[in-house]
């Protein structure tokens, strides 16, 4: 059995009551993503725990984990840098920005830097097309990102530690 922070436990308790009677399975996807934020990745222990709470088999949770691209079986960095290269971003330098991020962080797609602070992912459209190119670091959106602006962002986060 796993327990989470009091805030998350409270969230989960509320979550499980928000679906119709006997439909706790509905909480699987949100529970996984919120738990991942706290645990760091989707571990097999977490799968079992979510299965228990949502009254499904671990296999049913495992199937879900493999399906959603934001769920990771391996821990990402403390700062997960997601660079969009989809069409709107591509047209205004998204690909160059992603390549710059690779160089800057010294890692590639879905890789984690040695210090565990940063990870990188080339992502699909995340809904910032009109303010492209866009980057999302953890859950924070950054619009009209240039390589210079990205450097500043990353350096700022490094310093903040």
């Amino acid at each position: 059995m796993m327990t989470f922070s009091p805030q998350l436990e409270q969230k989960f308790a509320k979550m499980l009551t928000s679906y119709p009677e006997g439909k706790k399975r509905s909480a699987v996807v949100p529970m996984l993503i919120y738990a991942q934020d706290e645990v760091g990745s989707i571990t097999s222990e977490l799968i079992d725990e979510v299965a228990r709470r949502c009254e499904v088999t671990p296999l049913q949770v495992d199937e879900v984990v493999g399906y959603y691209s934001m769920l990771h079986r391996n821990p990402m960095g403390k700062y997960h840098v997601q660079v969009c290269t989809n069409i709107s971003c591509l047209l205004v330098g998204g690909m160059e920005l992603y390549e710059h991020a690779c160089k800057k962080l010294g890692i590639g797609h879905k890789q984690v830097a040695a210090d565990g602070q940063f990870s990188l992912e080339e992502v699909e459209c995340m809904g910032a097309c009109s303010w492209a190119p866009a980057v999302e670091i953890n859950y924070d959106f950054h619009h009209h990102v240039t390589p210079e602006k990205l450097d500043q962002l990353i350096d700022g986060l490094r310093k903040a530690q």
């Binding site: 088999t57 199937e63 493999g66 399906y67």
Partner: peptide, 9 residues
């Protein structure tokens, strides 16, 4: 039994 599922996409 339900021992098989589908993962990834």
């Amino acid at each position: 039994v339900g021992a098989l599922g589908v993962s990834n996409r």
